[in-house]
Amino acid sequence: MKLLPALALVLASASAQATVITYNFSGVFGAPVRASFGGATSPEPVFLDLVKAGEQFSGSFSFDTDAVATSYAGDPFRWATYATQEFKLQGSAALSAAVPSWGVGSIQVTDDNDPWMSGNPVDELIATAGAAPDGQHNLSFVLRMNPGSSNAFHDFRVPAGFNGFTDATLSFYLFHSEVFVYDIVNAQVKVSLDGAPAEVPEPATGLLLLAGLGGLAALRRRR
């Protein structure tokens, strides 16, 4: 019976953990196109030649599945957003040189989202990130991932080991802020979970784990 307190400490430490997961993505860019507000024009190359049709790209993003939502919406929109812990994108040499790093993005988890009241609610995971290569341009990255089921993300949470996306699409925007022109390129994307979920004990739970193991060792010595 004396083993029970020590075992309880070990079990408590194992249950109170933060789970950070990483998804990898890759694809091939389509042809960039230009649009504008009010007929504005720009002499600059479409997408500043940072992205061209047929170029391969890859990247990853990480987030904590147990994090507190930074914002949320109720019926009928039903989504919650969380901050990404890391976002990476590798493309052409020109793109990597223009954007060596990306700012902290966001993760939007939709659960039975049906804003048009169509009777066909859907779940979806949306990863976004942004960067400013200079004072005249801004980049926006939007990756939409479909789990193929409206029961995938219950209570706006992505299960730690979820790896069942049926399709994913990328929309990549470049805004020419001074002339109100924007360029866009789309792509089909493959998304996969990066190995097993990484269980990261919180500092306090790590101490509990050590205390529990210490208690077990002490009881063994007494016997």
Rank of each mutant, 00 (worst) to 15 (best):
T70G: 15
V191N: 14
T169K: 15
R78D: 06
N113V: 00
I184Y: 02
G91S: 11
D66C: 07
F175M: 13
T166L: 01
S149K: 00
V28E: 15
A67D: 11
F29G: 09
V10D: 02
V109G: 09
S150D: 01
R144P: 05
P121M: 04
L139N: 10
L174S: 08
L7P: 08
V122D: 01
G161V: 01
P32H: 08
S13F: 08
V191E: 09
M145Y: 05
L174H: 10
D64A: 04
Y173D: 14
A129G: 13
L210T: 03
V189G: 09
E124H: 01
A198Q: 12
N138A: 12
V68A: 14
D66G: 15
A35H: 15
A94H: 02
A187F: 04
Q17K: 15
S60R: 15
P159N: 04
P197L: 08
A98H: 11
A93G: 07
F153T: 00
P115T: 03
V104S: 12
T41V: 11
A152S: 09
L4P: 03
G148E: 02
D64S: 08
S192R: 14
T41E: 03
F29W: 15
P203Q: 07
G195W: 14
D114W: 04
M117W: 04
L139S: 11
A18Y: 06
K52D: 03
S150H: 00
Y82M: 07
A98I: 10
V99I: 12
D167W: 09
R221L: 10
D114K: 02
A198D: 06
D167T: 08
V179I: 07
F77A: 01
A168V: 08
G161I: 01
N120G: 00
V104R: 15
L48H: 03
V189A: 06
S106E: 15
G103I: 00
S13V: 01
E86D: 11
G39N: 08
N163M: 05
L207F: 07
L89V: 12
L11Y: 05
T128Y: 04
T65H: 05
A69V: 07
K190I: 10
N120V: 03
Y182W: 12
H176S: 08
T166F: 00
A187S: 15
N146D: 14
A94L: 00
P32T: 09
K190Y: 00
H154E: 05
D155R: 13
A16F: 13
S171P: 01
L213H: 05
L210N: 03
I21D: 12
A69M: 02
L95S: 03
D167M: 06
L208E: 06
G30D: 11
N186R: 04
A132G: 04
G161L: 01
A6G: 05
A14S: 11
G39R: 06
A69T: 06
W79A: 06
L89H: 09
E178S: 07
R220F: 14
